[in-house]
Design a protein around this nucleic acid. Sequence first.
DNA 1: TGTACATCAGTGAACGCGCGTTCACTGATGTAC
DNA 2: TGTACATCAGTGAACGCGCGTTCACTGATGTAC
Lengths: 206, 206
Amino acid sequence: VNSTSDVRERNRRGEGGKLRAEILRAAGELLEQEGGQQAVTLRAVARQVGVSAPSIYAHFADRDAMLRAVVEDAFIEFIAAIKADLQPGEDPVTQLRAGCAAYLRFAEQRPNQYRTMFSRPFNVNEAVFPADWHFGSDAFQVLVDAVQACVESGNSTSTDPFNDAVALWVGMHGLAVLRTGVPHFPWPEQSDVLDRLIDGLAKLTP
Amino acid sequence: VNSTSDVRERNRRGEGGKLRAEILRAAGELLEQEGGQQAVTLRAVARQVGVSAPSIYAHFADRDAMLRAVVEDAFIEFIAAIKADLQPGEDPVTQLRAGCAAYLRFAEQRPNQYRTMFSRPFNVNEAVFPADWHFGSDAFQVLVDAVQACVESGNSTSTDPFNDAVALWVGMHGLAVLRTGVPHFPWPEQSDVLDRLIDGLAKLTP
DNA sequence: TGTACATCAGTGAACGCGCGTTCACTGATGTAC
DNA sequence: TGTACATCAGTGAACGCGCGTTCACTGATGTAC
């Protein structure tokens, strides 16, 4: 698969940690391109990196731990991608739209990583999403605040920004996963659907 | 697993087709209870039915064909469950709400089957969702008609029932899969979120 | 400056497992005469 | 009514595969003296 993998050189002493990053990168690519957690096997990752399978155990306790790290990494990048698109100077409605658009852009560009981030693990145990994992409730607060800001600027009639933000979130999630999951549907423009979700659920005034 | 499985009696001549139904039932249960397509192996299904693995080949060409049949079966039951809850005598808004509630009830009671129905196959090839599979676009038309009926009865301001129905569908889907996929989130009442989706996306007038 | 040595970053072979699929078969059941 | 036989509904053993994981190891790299 990876023709450069066989020429990989062993890291120097003290640089063993570099392999960890290479493993995460390869595992993330496999997750995205092969389309599921089940494709992210220890052996496939090792093959992709150009290393023997047991080498992975120096950096991850087992396959579960590796998978969990991949998902955590993806989540961090997801949040960073959204924050990068928020323009603090703009008005609240523009900010809300920009954030939602960035959310969907990530889901569109990395659909399998996105889906894995927000679905229960099937082929691994609950360790991937432990009960104490907050999965970014801080990140969700950004959405609540964005809706709240629209209310305060007079652009939204929402009387319950938290619950309205929940509705908007589930709407965006549904759009993100159904578009890739059911490609044969006669989909309208993605932005058209997204605008309906934002306008209707954040209760924006025309 | 199934202690009654070892006492299963061979079907009589002419009744070999019964095994097909037993296989589908067992595969559906495995899909639901073990939580993923990867749990629905030929051997696991055979074990559950109380039959040897090669017996399945008398009824399905291969594992893919079996999985496809399970999903098709689930879809038929899904549509039937929704239609059963529509009360034709009621007013359009009540009908719309009843249909949406039935949709979510199925997704809540059989989350893994629901999720599998609407997601790309990962561990099997595209044969499970072939390009010519309409996946129930007729069923979707029911939702469009329900929104349209609300418009005609003066209960909705929608000017584009199809696109608004798409938005409502993705909203319901997102709610259905996120509630089971991210159980640690501080979810509001499901009916509260659903009402926000229906009111806001079908543009119901108060 | 030279050298012995501990350490580090990996390797290669092996294990047991469950899987999808194939193949030749078996034995009860119904039917033709 | 009896019996030979075709058919049907499965079975059991075997195959090759990729997997996660373990184990003892190797050889280059840096360090202590």
